[in-house]
């Protein structure tokens, strides 16, 4: 595994977008300004010294007491250099983020999952609707303020088939 150049290269190319670079046990995490996420991601994928051609994971985190409240983490892998990189960005409540699903097709369902569970909107996503929960579900359950048992725990469940409506 060659040393990952991503931190230096990003600092050089997008000095205003890089917020923070962390190294921990040879893992690099770079925090990026949310507005620049598409440019940075395209650069990471297409620069021939980096070649982060695989999106391993995309996840949301809710820091209830922080501002901005949400964080999105992207785990990237370079099949050419066998490098891994973590990109983070923050999203405020009610704000939205540009999709990366046209850069890595794998992001399509992952962004839908983040939308489903956190309610974060991804701009220009081709098909942003719930993926895990039923269509008519109300709320976003991985938000810290969502009650774990659900708002209607203890009430009898009504299941109506289409023909019974």
């Amino acid at each position: 595994m060659a040393k990952c150049m991503a931190g230096d290269l990003l600092k050089e190319t997008f000095p205003e977008a890089v917020r923070d670079i962390e190294e921990f046990r040879r893992e690099t995490s770079i925090t990026i300004d949310a507005g620049k996420i598409r440019e940075v991601m395209t650069f990471l994928k297409e620069n021939e010294k980096l070649c982060y051609d695989l999106l391993l994971d995309l996840a949301g985190v809710d820091f209830d007491d922080r501002s901005p409240r949400f964080m999105i983490a992207y785990l990237l892998h370079s099949t050419k250099f066998n490098n891994k990189l973590r990109i983070k960005t923050t999203v405020a409540e009610g704000a939205s983020l540009d999709t990366v699903s046209d850069i890595w097709i794998a992001a399509d369902w992952m962004e839908r999952e983040v939308y489903d569970l956190f309610g974060i909107i991804f701009n220009n996503h081709p098909y942003l609707r719930r993926i895990l929960l039923p269509e008519d579900f109300v709320g976003h359950p991985l938000r810290k303020d969502f009650p774990v048992k659900g708002p209607d725990f203890g009430q009898p469940l009504q299941v109506c088939l289409e023909e019974e409506r």
Partner: peptide, 13 residues
């Protein structure tokens, strides 16, 4: 699973 997504006993349905 005392959670928002699990039916608390199939005898409800």
């Amino acid at each position: 699973f005392q959670t928002y997504n699990v039916v608390q006993g199939v005898d409800q349905i």
